[in-house]
Design a protein around this nucleic acid. Structure first.
Lengths: 120, 120
DNA sequence: CTAAGACCTGACGTTGACGTCAGAGGCAAG
DNA sequence: CTTGCCTCTGACGTCAACGTCAGGTCTTAG
């Protein structure tokens, strides 16, 4: 498939896909005239990239970790890196939970019809 | 207290504090010579701002919502806004959980000492 | 064959939350 | 009174993940 098709299927912009390639995250073969050609596996590849971006990983970090996924093996260093990112994500989840609860508190407090003003 | 003290107590940079004021998130009185002076409540204010930033809210959004917190009341619009942000945070938590599990899968798969290569 | 799209490679623009630097003034200690 | 640190106001720099535009090529439906 060509880049426009991949963009449609993944709902990722053409520019973003070219950017991913530029960052070494997404490979493509080229047609005779130089146009990018992708196999079906590219769809899942892009989804994975999006998930990792969504988790707050930088393109540089993703570029370092994707080879492990491709090869199916990890060095002790990359394993530590993966674990560190996972821990960071766990910490961020905890932070988000706190923020969400804080927001719910704010909603509750500011929604009370009759504040009564007992609490100054 | 002066800005440097507040920065130390909150572990937020002086520049960031001035930026918060610029964005209307953090008020300060001024000394005769024009230096910013903060009360103790500013510490918790900064913490709240940090939490909301951490949750992915923009300074503009925070600026719209803080008055509700201060006044202890919310209009229907701001309540909807708060609820929308909460939902967004919940969605992001879900996304992060997926990404974390994905990362754990990658760690597991790439850590297997003997892949056996059964699965091509 | 031709016109409309899709695609190509640069390359500059954008946005948010600050970092950093310049130049000048304030404040407490000795 | 001076030295050293803190603070002030601009104002430009940064960084990532793209958006967008220019100018040219490719492909394909009709």
């Amino acid at each position: 498939m060509r880049i426009g098709d991949l963009a449609t299927r993944t709902r990722v912009s053409v520019r973003a896909l070219r950017y991913y390639e530029e960052q070494g995250l997404l490979a493509s073969t080229r047609s005779g005239s130089g146009q990018r050609v992708y196999g079906d596996a590219a769809v899942n590849r892009v989804r994975l990239i999006q998930q990792l971006y969504g988790a707050g990983l930088s393109s540089k970090t993703i570029a370092e970790l994707l080879p492990c996924v491709d090869a199916g093996v990890s060095t002790p260093e990359s394993r530590a890196r993966l674990a560190a990112e996972r821990d960071r994500i766990n910490a961020q989840i905890a932070e988000l939970v706190i923020a969400r609860d804080r927001l719910n508190d704010i909603i509750d407090v500011t929604s009370r019809p009759n504040p009564q003003c007992d609490y100054a």
